[in-house]
Design a protein around this nucleic acid. Structure first.
Lengths: 210, 210, 210, 210
DNA sequence: CATGAATGAGAATTCATTCAT
DNA sequence: GATGAATGAATTCTCATTCAT
């Protein structure tokens, strides 16, 4: 009785340990530069052990993506739960999205900046699941915008179009912050300033005629 | 005579052929997953031939980036030359940027959506040159925004910050249009509508208090 | 139990097999002309396996050199332990050196007749260790010569210089016996005669004024 | 008529230019590290041109060896021509041999420190010729020793054996000077001292009973 | 005569993955 | 359940060599 449970718990713990190590490494070195051996070394297990928990390297990665996307969704769920001013809630949500991307750059890049062949499936297996979570994330944005419109704090015509536009904007900010912020040749303003100004511009653009 | 010229032309053609194949592959599979052999196979030459035209894989990459920027810059130069209303000019420029990205998706993704290790001084060699052209592109945007402010058609505080925000926005729109517009799992609005709504939102956000 | 031991033994056997094959090939074809693949082919293992036992090609080389020196040193240690006439002891030591070279031609050539780049700090890692053993071998010669001088059986001025000279001489004899004795174009005298005459000449050259 | 002659002269000049460049490079970097391209670059011709003058890389090398060995022979011929004390002449000859080896280390190593497969011919083509010159070199030594014996300055029994012993000795000195003199881990005495002491020991060993 | 262009073969090395134990 | 050992396939890149011009 207790034995089986302990075993199951231990197994789950190791699985999580692998995911954590892999997550760190992917972020530190980028997907392509992380070998299964490196992950195994970091947790002091053999490479073969990894394969007892994950079919292959891509499944490891999908699992991580799914994990972190669930994290974003949970964060947004939590924010949505908080009562309060719709506009402030929208802004917090957008900000949470950007922060999330910056906190999980490799997962963000993989999911949104990697061309996915929408015909031949390979990585696809787990992506269905990931996409489902992704859509739910988008729904959050849509609901938040709708609430602002209903409260009269924002004004726009088509909810779906507007949501997509807003999403492309914060995606642009997020992805460039991830990709290029280390580029010493470009005179970037501080990230904080870029983010806040971006949110300002979006909200001003959607504010009712003044 | 004609011999030398034909030779030179053929050489340039092959160089371009390599660049084209590499560009496609980099985008299709990501920089790290493209081997020199794959590029060679695609154009049906030997891998060694690639090295007659490019020092190594990173030089290939830099050359591609440079090509992108140059093309875009030329387009923006042309537009800037046209006299006309500043605001209309800005909108045309932004639109040109997006259209350019959609017209050259491979190059665009390569240049703006590919993680580059800005610490390891490997890619750096040719990047000085690339960045110079890139910065000039950004300057176009900055000048266009400035003209609109001076004409009183737009209002904002910091020119540099605003330029960067606007750039991240249209970059977001452009890159998602390139990457995800084919995703059947997401209820995309038509591209034309997304683009125009995006430009509307940006310009509204920058318009003087009404 | 026995399992671990057998495994360890098998592992050591394969390591030795690799060293043997590499030693032969290095001598047959020269260090630069031996690829890891060739070694692997000869023992019918995959190239990757070699890297489980040796970090890289140069470590293979260093290990071989170390083996040589160790074997020779053990032999000389044994001889030095035997009490007896100093001059006879010296002669036995020199003879042992030559015999050792002939008995392990591959190792000998590898260690003493293969050009090593002493500037590029590549091979250097393990060479510290090798050189320690090498120097100890040289010390044997030096001590043996010193004993003969103290017993009055030999006479010379500088011990270090004389030791080096004697070493270059027997090295010359050893290496040519290994390399060229099969050359049908040269009227070689029988090896035994060459060796004994060589030792005679050395000892006569060092004998006190008669 | 002059035209053909000039052409022939120019052709010979280029051949020599190639040999010179190759010789320098072989010495500077070692046979294996010299590519045909490097040679071509140094003389500012195309690699293909080399092949108009030499069948392949090994023929280039054999030609060089032959050239330099002819040089040694010429030197010894010259020395032999000088009248004078037989013993001094012998010493000069031995010294010339060692100096020659040090001056042409790669050719020396190739010829005397590289195992040659005396059955299957590949490098063999030109080696017959080289060997002929090598034998003549050995004859010089034999004659010089014989003269010293006849003058009563040296004493030994078998001329052939003694010649071979002496040769192995100076070969040992030469080859170790070439190979290991750069080794910082061995307390080498200065080359000059090693050489002179070596010659001293040989001549003392052969001097008549005192 | 000389060469620019091209390549097949091969170099060292790394990696994801499997499997007997 | 975990692993040590092994490998096939791939990586970037270099080289000697050929051939049409």
């Amino acid at each position: 009785m207790g034995v089986a449970e302990r075993r199951a718990r231990e197994k789950e713990e190791l699985r999580q340990k692998i995911l954590d190590a892999a997550g760190q490494l992917f972020v530190e070195e980028g997907f392509a530069n992380v070998s299964v051996r490196k992950i195994a070394d970091r947790i002091e297990y053999s490479p073969a052990t990894i394969y007892l928990y994950f079919k292959d390297k891509t499944e490891l990665f999908s699992s991580l993506c799914w994990e972190t996307f669930s994290g974003l969704k949970a964060e947004l769920d939590r924010l949505e739960g908080e009562a309060g001013d719709p506009l402030a809630g929208l802004r917090r949500g957008l900000r949470a999205y950007i922060d999330f991307g910056i906190a999980h750059p490799n997962h963000y890049l993989l999911t949104f900046c990697t061309p996915v062949d929408h015909s031949a499936g390979k990585v696809m297996d787990n992506f269905q699941e990931i996409n489902r979570v992704g859509l739910e994330t988008f729904d959050h944005l849509q609901r938040a915008l709708d609430r602002c419109r209903q409260s009269g704090q924002l004004a726009f015509e088509d909810l779906n179009t507007t949501s997509q536009v807003v999403w492309t904007f914060i995606h642009g900010t997020t992805s460039l912050l991830i990709l290029n912020s280390g580029d010493p040749h470009f005179p970037w303003v501080p990230p904080e300033q870029l983010i806040e100004s971006s949110l300002d511009l979006i909200l001003r653009g959607l504010s009712p005629a003044r």
